[in-house]
């Protein structure tokens, strides 16, 4: 049986390579990915503060209490908001700019660089910079309001506006990255197709609508994928801006895990959040890959 399997077509001739190269990779993956995930799943069944060994077994109670926490709902909503804004604002913006800047003209390289710059900036630095920009007393925003003779709002200090303020920073920071993806795809595109469309009498808009954008679909799918995964990971931008507050209004899943799990030394509870986040990530990644990125 085993011999047949080994002699099967799949491993034919590749067996030595498999035996040589698979174990190290498998070992690393097990030690650094599978085991920590398994450990977190195990801890999530205990009421444990991180000291000593976990002994207080409470079954699935951590999970129930996560679902009951208002901050969890808010975090989930905010992650959803980030995805929606990424799709409705960031992606069209990046695409438009990419189409404009993919052409070669004086200053196009400079503009590309300029728009890409925020992406290069560290998240923490970006957060700090914007916390100054948003400051209602001394910030840039306050100066603009004052120029019009109005009192500036403290956007980060109100539960109604804090998430919107974070979203603006998210778009500002990441649109350049998506723009670069699109520019790369546009430059790799077969010019003959557009040429052909033009000769056939297609207007500029029609060329975009029927030739360029369909050819960009794979890149758009990739960009959406990055936006979704990025949303689920968003943390280091939120911490210097709002730390998830006020009143948990700008929590993301990861900042929720950090503020309610790590900072409170509730290792079991935090692990439960981690496991939930893991399940969400895996589901999203696999579903997306299966439904939208089948061809790649």
């Amino acid at each position: 049986m085993v011999a047949t399997a080994l002699r099967s077509r799949r491993t034919d001739g590749q067996l030595p390579a498999l035996l040589l190269f698979l174990p190290p990779a498998l070992l690393l993956f097990t030690i650094f990915v599978v085991m920590p995930v398994g450990e977190a799943a195990w801890y999530s069944l205990f009421n444990w503060n991180g000291f000593g060994r976990p002994t207080n077994w409470i079954g699935l109670r951590n999970y129930f209490s996560v679902f009951e926490t208002r901050a969890f709902g808010l975090a989930l909503r905010n992650n959803g908001l980030i995805i929606v804004v990424s799709l409705l604002v960031q992606l069209p913006l990046a695409l438009t700019l990419a189409i404009m800047l993919a052409e070669k003209f004086r200053g196009s390289v400079f503009l590309r660089m300029l728009f890409f710059m925020p992406y290069v900036l560290a998240e923490i630095a970006t957060g700090l910079i914007f916390s100054f920009v948003y400051d209602g007393d001394y910030g840039l925003l306050a100066a603009i309001y004052r120029a019009f003779g109005a009192e500036a709002p403290h956007l980060l200090a109100s539960a109604d506006t804090s998430m919107a303020a974070v979203l603006v920073v998210v778009v500002w920071k990441y649109f350049g990255f998506h723009m670069m993806l699109f520019i790369a795809a546009l430059q790799g595109m077969d010019r003959n197709l557009i040429e052909a469309a033009r000769i056939d009498g297609a207007t500029r808009v029609q060329q975009l609508r029927f030739v360029v954008i369909p050819l960009l679909y794979p890149t758009i799918r990739l960009s959406v994928f990055f936006a979704v995964v990025g949303s689920l990971q968003l943390f280091d931008l939120v911490m210097p801006l709002t730390r998830g507050g006020p009143a948990d209004s700008s929590q993301t899943m990861v900042s929720f895990l950090y503020t309610h799990g790590v900072m409170r030394m509730r290792v079991g509870y935090g692990s439960a959040i981690g496991v939930i986040l893991f399940v969400i990530c895996v589901t999203v990644a696999f579903t997306y890959k299966r439904w939208f990125m089948r061809d790649e």
């Binding site: 400051d135 209602g136 007393d137 403290h154 109100s158 539960a159 709002t242």
Partner: peptide, 17 residues
């Protein structure tokens, strides 16, 4: 404490400071 809060005694944007 709420009686105090209701007077809005804090600086603008105190929840973000």
């Amino acid at each position: 404490y709420k009686q105090l809060v209701d007077l809005q005694p804090f600086q603008n944007g105190f929840l973000g400071a």
